[in-house]
């Protein structure tokens, strides 16, 4: 099992510097792969539509996920509800490459997250701050992403979460031992994990940005703030020209500090997803699962 934990963290390392795209059909998965996605997230409805449809949203149909697995060679991820032990076992049974225990779906358990150490497949989980990130890692997550506010096209919450995580890590690196004890207490995580983060100045797993990324500039911004890669959900297939926008975001993540390339790829992309302001939404998904 020790090997498994490391191999699962290693797969996330291979995804770094890349863009993981939400797709709902095999055709979209192929478009994403051809545009340079390093992985796809297979789901029945992208977050913007989940938001619009309301009601309870659940794990996708395994058949639909399998069709996407067969359509591409890149890794395929899929979402389960927070705390839904069985949905996760089902995705493991169809050999999903990564499970996203996601606040985008309706939580199945309002107290417990899944004990992810019991699974062979890797998990990615969302976090708003360092405490959440470390609690998920203790539970067995082998990759972290910001929660952001999915399906809005508004990047402000992803920025807020990434800034919070990075600032808290920087703060840990300058703390004395007694201060680290207190930090561990406040974040409700083991002292050794806090020491590990303080010594390395980074999380022990890969950290991506997610939630509200809609443009190449948004993606580059998240990299600038310390993301090691980017999830793009509704931003691509809710826009005017998905293929071109997807490829542009991929290039923006690779060359996030080259502003000539960023200017170039941002040209003539057509309509971005319309987006809703965080103040206009009823449902705050990032408040699910702490």
């Amino acid at each position: 099992m020790e090997d498994r934990v490391e191999l699962n963290r290693n797969l996330a390392q291979m995804l770094k510097g890349g863009v993981i795209m939400d797709v709902t059909t095999p055709e979209q998965a192929k478009i994403a792969q051809n545009a340079g996605a390093c992985a796809v997230m297979a789901l029945e409805r992208i977050p913007a539509d989940i938001r619009a449809a309301g009601g309870v949203s659940r794990m996708s149909d395994p058949l639909m996920i399998k069709e996407i697995q067969n359509a591409v060679t890149i890794p395929v991820m899929a979402k389960v509800r927070i705390g839904h032990i069985t949905e996760a076992r089902i995705l493991e049974a169809i050999e999903i490459d990564y499970i996203d225990e996601s606040e985008v779906l309706s939580p199945a358990d309002d107290v417990y997250h899944i004990d992810k150490t019991k699974y062979s497949v890797p998990f990615v989980c969302g976090a708003k701050d360092l405490g959440e990130a470390l609690r998920r890692i203790v539970e067995g997550a082998s990759m972290i992403r910001t929660k952001g506010e999915p399906g809005t096209g508004d990047v402000v919450q992803a920025v807020r979460h990434m800034r919070a995580i990075m600032a808290e890590i920087r703060r840990l690196t300058s703390m004395s031992k007694d201060e680290l004890y207190n930090a561990a207490k406040l974040m409700q995580v083991p002292y050794n994990l806090v020491v590990n983060v303080a010594q390395n100045g980074k999380l022990p797993v890969v950290n991506f940005a997610a939630g509200g990324v809609a443009t190449p500039a948004d993606a580059a911004l998240m990299m600038e703030l310390g993301a090691e890669g980017v999830f793009v959900g509704s931003g691509i297939f809710k826009s005017g020209n998905p293929e071109q926008r997807a490829a542009a975001i991929v290039k923006a993540v690779t060359n996030y500090k080259d502003y000539n390339i960023l200017a170039n790829v941002s040209e003539g992309l057509g309509e971005a997803m319309v987006g809703i302001n965080e103040n206009e939404i009823q449902l705050i998904m990032s408040e699910r699962g702490k």
Binding site: M14, G36, A37, K251
Partner: peptide, 15 residues
């Protein structure tokens, strides 16, 4: 390096 070969191959062409 390691990563996704389709992604890296596509970026080699695009860039």
């Amino acid at each position: 390096p390691g990563g996704e070969s389709t992604t890296i191959g596509k970026l080699l062409l695009d860039l």
